[in-house]
């Protein structure tokens, strides 16, 4: 709910910058983050807003980073493509498709060496599944039993290319099979399904059982990026948006009497208020001084 509200308000701004939105795919990030413990790490691709907020990063700091302000965790240098706050478990975004996978495996190797039970999660898109880096990562992660949970948020489209034209394997999770890696495909619009699968795989990885590949079938509610034209017909996008993971969970919670309408409305109001505070925080922070272009280079 926070991710959706955050992105909706960001999109509405004329100075939103270049963004890849997570709207529609929130349940993947939230479900995976729910499986994380202190000491675990999450790496994402460039579609990072959902992952960062799900890891508990302060929404004001994230907004500041995305708007290029120095109050961002990376002083506005990284943007959504490279946002990170390692001490919060969000080891970072890396906007090279499949580029975060081998690095996640290296982080998992460090966790294994440290012997403290840390697990590394990597979220990537279906577009990464045709890349050699995934296959190299699966191979070495299996050989070395790395504590690595690979999570494919399969939104069905790599910019405009359908997954059926980009990856020969179906389902995508079956890519892990030949490597002897545990794998599953779940409904990525159902946060409880994602959370249950991610937690199970994380528990196995934590206890030395090795890596896993979790495919989450999700939907992208917007075009690939804030500057990419939408290739799907409007009626298809409308139909997709009907399958909202937040509405789905809200309905479940109301049906189970975990929440009532009043509590839900209060939650929505509190979320909007948080975004108000986030935007105010970001706007109060300046852009970096130009000389920071040379800071922290070597």
């Amino acid at each position: 709910m926070l991710i959706r509200a955050f992105e909706t308000r960001l999109m509405a701004r004329p100075d939103h910058g270049f963004q890849l939105y997570s709207s529609g795919e929130e349940a993947v990030a939230v479900g995976v983050a729910s499986a994380m413990r202190t000491g675990d790490r999450l790496l994402s691709g460039g579609r990072s807003i959902g992952a960062a907020l799900a890891c508990g990063l302060d929404s004001g700091q994230v907004m500041a980073e995305l708007l290029g302000r120095i109050a961002g965790p990376n002083r506005g240098r990284a943007g959504r493509g490279h946002l990170s706050q390692p001490e919060s478990g969000f080891f970072g975004a890396h906007a090279v498709v499949a580029g975060n996978l081998t690095i996640a495996a290296g982080a998992a190797l460090a966790c294994q060496r440290a012997g403290e039970g840390g697990v590394v999660f990597a979220i990537f898109g279906d577009g990464a599944c045709g890349a050699g880096a995934l296959h190299e990562t699966l191979n070495v992660a299996s050989l070395w039993k790395l504590p690595l949970v690979l999570v494919c948020s399969n939104n069905g489209l790599s910019i405009s290319t359908p997954v059926s034209s980009g990856v020969a394997a179906d389902p995508l999770s079956s890519l892990a099979g030949p490597f002897g890696i545990a794998h599953a495909t779940v409904d990525g619009m159902d946060v409880e399904a994602v959370a249950a699968a991610a937690s199970g795989f994380a528990a196995d990885a934590r206890s030395g059982g090795g890596p896993a590949l979790l495919e989450c079938r999700a939907e992208r509610f917007t075009s690939h990026s804030s500057s990419t034209r939408e290739t799907r017909p409007a009626e298809q996008v409308t139909a997709i948006r009907e399958r909202c993971p937040i509405a789905h969970l809200s309905a479940e919670l109301l049906r189970g009497a975990v929440l009532d309408e009043t509590a839900l409305a209060a939650l929505e109001a509190e979320t909007e208020a948080e975004i108000d505070r986030a935007i105010a925080f970001a706007e109060a922070s300046p852009m970096p001084p130009a000389e920071e272009a040379l800071h922290d280079v070597v």
Binding site: R41, F91, L101, T102, I103, A104, A105, G106, A107, A108, L109, A110, C111, R113, G132, A133, E136, T137, N139, V140
Partner: peptide, 13 residues
């Protein structure tokens, strides 16, 4: 690719 990536990831940790 994996060898360098593994090294980068471990070093970054």
């Amino acid at each position: 690719a994996a060898m360098v990536g593994l090294g980068v990831g471990a070093a970054a940790m």
